[in-house]
């Protein structure tokens, strides 16, 4: 069987028309990647580099002004052969969601309906897909909430009565209770304390192991990536700039941006000052020519300002888009 997800040359732009002129924010620009079965793929990158946009496009949760301009997103659930998610009909898509593909979106603690108790959200969305009688279903939900260190009585609460972290865990529970084949999670643990976060990550990992499912996991927390993911992709300004098995990436990052990202992590007990990246994030409506990182890159060369570096596999499974790396210059 091939990969469960293959993204090919994907371009997704926010296209807005102001007084007749088109303004394009190229938030996902020519991204190609594959995710295997039984794999946790991590995605990291700068804020506003297009991670959420990529994820939305993959989950086909886009709405204008975001449009897919080019490329394909092929899912292959249960080895039925790859199908482009954008060619599915509405009923086919609905049948896929929750059972095969579930999507925890960024800021997901706010998707819960404010005037309905949590229990209703579970009944509305998960009940149909589980073919269980109601009492057994509720028991399953309660048990599942337990894995996320939530007490059963959150089911009777309204969203505003829960803390941010509790709501976030409720949406994680909602997205995982049907045990889908492919879980897309956009910053699902940002509001959790480290103890609970560890529990949640263990739950995701266990679920993934038991089911042999795949997870696409976005977070800013590089330590989470190091501990959870099998492979890691790094995005900068709408492009994938580096991709490698997680351990190899941390051991020897090849892209200067990745190297900076790893170096900027503060640690308890380490007092050396850390600094953010100099300069401002590129404007995706008119990104710099050539390598989009060149205005901020310590290794920038002449060629970087003109030619866009392409992804090259420099070590087994280790792809990077950088002129310096291609010449063997390490950041």
């Amino acid at each position: 069987m091939g990969p469960i997800l293959a993204v090919e040359g994907l371009k997704a732009y926010y296209q807005m028309r102001y007084f007749g002129t088109l303004r394009e924010v190229r938030a996902v620009d020519d991204i190609t990647l594959e995710i295997q079965r039984d794999e946790i793929y991590g995605l990291a990158g700068e804020s506003s580099s297009g991670k959420s946009t990529l994820i939305k496009t993959i989950a086909r949760a886009i709405r204008p002004p975001l449009n897919v301009v080019d490329g394909a997103v092929r899912f292959d659930f249960a080895g039925q052969g790859p199908r482009d998610i954008y060619t599915l009909s509405a009923p086919e898509l609905a049948a896929t969601r929750w059972r095969h593909l579930s999507y925890i979106m960024q800021g997901s603690m706010n998707v819960l309906n404010p005037v309905r108790r949590i229990r209703h959200s579970f009944v509305d969305f998960a009940f149909r897909h589980m073919s269980l009688p109601m009492p057994a279903f509720l028991r399953r939900v309660e048990e599942h909430l337990g894995h996320l260190s939530l007490r059963p009585d959150v089911l009777e609460s309204f969203p505003h009565e829960l803390s941010g972290g509790m709501r976030q865990r409720v949406t994680i529970a909602l997205a995982t209770v049907c045990r889908p084949d492919f879980i897309i999670a956009d910053e699902p643990t940002t509001a959790l304390d480290v103890v609970v976060q560890k529990g949640v990550l263990e739950m995701i990992r266990r679920l993934q192991r038991e089911m042999g499912s795949s997870v696409l996991f976005v977070t800013h927390d590089m330590a989470v990536h190091a501990n959870l993911t099998d492979r890691l992709g790094i995005m900068y300004a709408g492009r994938l700039v580096e991709e490698a098995p997680t351990r190899a990436l941390f051991r020897q990052p090849l892209h200067p941006y990745t190297a900076h990202l790893i170096r900027s992590l503060p640690r308890i007990g380490d007092d050396t000052p850390r600094h953010g990246l100099e300069g401002r994030p590129p404007n995706l409506a008119s990104p710099p020519p050539g390598c989009r990182f060149h205005p901020r890159c310590p290794l920038a060369m002449e060629v970087c300002q003109q030619t866009t570096p392409v992804m090259q596999e420099l070590a087994p499974g280790h792809r990077v888009a950088c002129h310096a790396a291609a010449q063997g210059i390490l950041p």
């Binding site: 990291a44 804020s47 800021g107 990202l261 850390r274 600094h275 953010g276």
Partner: peptide, 14 residues
């Protein structure tokens, strides 16, 4: 800073 990347997080915390 819970929603911000590591680099920007340091910028804001600094």
């Amino acid at each position: 800073v819970s929603m911000i990347d590591a680099s920007l997080r340091m910028t804001i915390v600094n």
